[in-house]
């Protein structure tokens, strides 16, 4: 009882000098960081902790993370190589496509030209044939027309002669067929 009552009035500095770190209420005296009583404990557990962490890191964590990173790097490198390969293939495919397109186009043009020439030749032949036919037909027609015209002239002469003879006989004259014919021919010429 007596010691407790005296402790109550003791200066904290005196307690600190006496090597005490904690006062009667469990409060800190000065800086607990400078309490040398606790140093061995902290140092011991720190060494234990650091050794455990080092073992965990060097045996498990760091090799594993290094392996993951290396694997990822490898995967990325492979993927890039594969992508470049595919890109080259795509470029080659495009070139082949363009080549095929150009070939097809020239071929199509050749076919078109050929077809055009063929059609033109056929057309020329047909036109020539048609022209010849038309010429033949028109010549024939002209001939027919000439024949008809000649026929019509003769008929006119005969009808005129007959009509003139009839007219002469009706008028009471005597129709001399040679005179009538001569007169008709004479009139037709004039």
């Amino acid at each position: 009882m007596a010691t407790e009552t005296t402790a109550q009035h003791v200066d904290p500095l005196a307690l600190e000098e006496a090597g005490m770190c904690v006062d009667a209420h469990g409060g800190a005296i000065g800086m607990p960081q400078l309490c040398f009583d606790w140093f061995p404990n902290q140092m011991f557990w720190l060494v234990v902790t650091l050794v455990v962490i080092f073992l965990v890191l060097s045996r498990v964590a760091l090799p594993r993370i290094a392996a993951i990173l290396a694997e990822r790097q490898g995967t990325i490198t492979n993927d890039i190589a594969a992508a470049e390969d595919l890109k080259a293939k795509a470029v080659a495919a495009e070139a082949a496509y363009n080549q095929a397109l150009a070939d097809a186009r020239t071929e199509a043009q050749a076919i078109v030209a050929e077809a055009k020439a063929e059609i033109q030749a056929d057309l020329d032949v047909a036109i020539q044939k048609a022209d010849a036919e038309i010429a033949a037909k028109s010549a024939e027609s002209e001939k027919a027309i000439a024949e008809i015209r000649a026929g019509a002239l003769d008929s006119v002469k005969a009808v005129a002669s007959d009509t003139a003879a009839e007219l002469v006989s009706v008028l009471g004259g005597k129709a001399d067929s040679d005179a009538v014919n001569a007169a008709v021919s004479d009139r037709l010429k004039g």
């Binding site: 606790w38 011991f44 720190l46 234990v48 902790t49 962490i53 965990v56 964590a61 993370i65």
Partner: peptide, 28 residues
């Protein structure tokens, strides 16, 4: 408190170890 006594130092250093294990070992 002697050098081997389990103290709050031990507790919080142990928790730091567990945090490191969770962070670097369990997560990977």
């Amino acid at each position: 408190i002697s050098w081997y006594t389990p103290t709050n130092v031990t507790l919080w250093m142990g928790l730091a170890v567990l945090a490191i294990i969770a962070l670097l070992v369990l997560s990977t």
